[in-house]
Every structure is written in structure tokens, then in C-alpha cells.
């Protein structure tokens, strides 16, 4: 029998109960990885994800803005899985609104979750990865991080900074065998993008050369590739997975 690509690898996925995160958990598990994921509040959905993986993955509640809790989850996952080879920082939120009416809390919550959360998880996880002699981190960014977007000043800023964080960690940790990359999805069919798709589906579709929105599984496949040894010479990169949306966006 051929070995699965992520056989015996250990992985922590944040924000794994819904959308892209849930697809990532299932994909890593189906490729043979031992997976622990976190969720903020959606406990029922977390249970469904566990069930969809035959009960073979585990989960715990985590607010990634809580530094102590982030360290505890990394320790918990490391102990439970017997190591930590892969970390996928997927937990993220949106608080969309026009810039001039954006509240301080809309700004702070998005930055602290989407950017600060990755900082905190990575700091704890890299310590473990250093001692193991390496690892692979994949951050879930967004094309908005490069392009910007109306009503998404906070979200775009968090993702643009996440790309910079990705590159910096890759440069700093490469000598210790830790690879750090990001995936930048375009428009994906998830709950998070439901509102935008409801009001602007046609307009956005017109700008996607591949003519449709992404399925969460199509983002998960890029994440699994970056996490695996198939990408072992790849670090510090932001891989755009958007059906070509950003090509037209720049026209």
C-alpha cells in the first residue's frame, strides 16, 4: 500500500469548525495526518467535523486573541499528537464596513484575531518546531491583503500584514528547518462570504476567469500541498488561489 502524503504527520489547525478551516481539517486527515483543531464558539459544528473524520481528530475551544490560551493549545496539541509538524493558521473574522464609519473595536478585533492570533500561535508553535528540527506553517490570507477592498480596510490590512509576517518568519526560521507560507484565497463559498455573495455575486463572477467561486476544498488542497514535503523547497510565499480573480482586478 502506498504511503499517504501526510502519514504520521501531526497538525494543528485554528478555526477548523467551519468553512475553509473545516475543509483543511478533513483534507489533512484524509492525507494521513493526525489533526487537532480549534474553534471559537461553534461547538456543534466542531463535533460535526470530528464526526466527518470518523472521530479520528480532536478539537478544543480557543480565542486566538488570548496569548495564554494559545500557548496552552499548542502544548495540548503537541502532547496529544506526539509532536507538531504542521500548523495552519486559519482562524479569522470579518467586521466589514466603510472606513469612515469603522469603529475602533471593528479595527482592533480584526487585527488582533487575523494578525495577532497568528503571531501568538506561531510564537508558541515555532518553539516546538525548533526543538523538533523543523516544521511547516501555512497561513490562510486573502487576495484582499494585496489588492485592498471596499469596506474591508481592517480585514485587508490584517491580511497584508499577515503576508509580511509570513515572509519574515520564513526568513528567520528557515535556517532551523521551519517553512512558512500562506495561501491567499479569492472568493470562496463559505458562511463568511455569504453576505458579499448575496449582494454582488454576479459582479464578482464576471471578474473571475474560471467563472465560479472556489469551494473550500480547493483552498484546502493548496494548504495540504504547502504543508507537505511536496513543497519542501518552498518558503516565504503567498500562493494565490482565486480562479484568476486578482488578474482581472489589476487590469
Amino acid at each position: 500500500m502506498s504511503m499517504k502524503r501526510l502519514e504520521s504527520r501531526t497538525a494543528l489547525v485554528t478555526g477548523g469548525s467551519r468553512g475553509i478551516g473545516a475543509a483543511i481539517v478533513r483534507r489533512l486527515w484524509s492525507e494521513g495526518a493526525k489533526v487537532h483543531f480549534t474553534y471559537r464558539a461553534a461547538e456543534d459544528q466542531a463535533r460535526e467535523v470530528i464526526a466527518s473524520c470518523g472521530g479520528a481528530v480532536s478539537a478544543s475551544a480557543l480565542d486566538v486573541t488570548d496569548a495564554v490560551a494559545c500557548e496552552a493549545v499548542v502544548d495540548e496539541a503537541t502532547e496529544k499528537l506526539g509532536g507538531l509538524d504542521i500548523v495552519v493558521n486559519n482562524a479569522g473574522i470579518i467586521r466589514d464596513g466603510l472606513f469612515l464609519s469603522m469603529e475602533d473595536t471593528d479595527w482592533a478585533e480584526v487585527i488582533e484575531t487575523n494578525l495577532g492570533g497568528v503571531f501568538r500561535i506561531c510564537r508558541a508553535a515555532c518553539r516546538q518546531m525548533l526543538m523538533q528540527g523543523g516544521g511547516s506553517i501555512v497561513n490562510v490570507s486573502s487576495i484582499v491583503g494585496e489588492l485592498g477592498g471596499v469596506g474591508q480596510a481592517n480585514y485587508a490590512a490584517s491580511k497584508g500584514a499577515l503576508n509580511a509576517l509570513t515572509r519574515s518568519l520564513a526568513a528567520e526560521l528557515g535556517p532551523k528547518g521551519v517553512r512558512v507560507n500562506a495561501v491567499a484565497p479569492g472568493m470562496v463559498r463559505t458562511d463568511m462570504t455569504g453576505a458579499v455573495r448575496a449582494v454582488a455575486a454576479e459582479k464578482i463572477l464576471e471578474r473571475i476567469p474560471l467563472g465560479r467561486f472556489a469551494e473550500p476544498e480547493e483552498i484546502a488542497s493548496a494548504v495540504a500541498f504547502l504543508a507537505s514535503d511536496d513543497a519542501k523547497y518552498l518558503t516565504g510565499q503567498v500562493v494565490t488561489v482565486d480562479g484568476g480573480l486578482s488578474l482581472l482586478g489589476r487590469r
Binding site: L130, M131, E172, L173, P175
Partner: peptide, 15 residues
Amino acid sequence: AESIDFLDIVFRLEK
């Protein structure tokens, strides 16, 4: 040793 190695050494010593 490079600068990041010093951190690595500290982590390993702590353990």
C-alpha cells in the same frame, strides 16, 4: 551559531 540558534539552545536547555 547564529542568533536564532541561541534561542534554540535556551529552549532545549529549559527542557
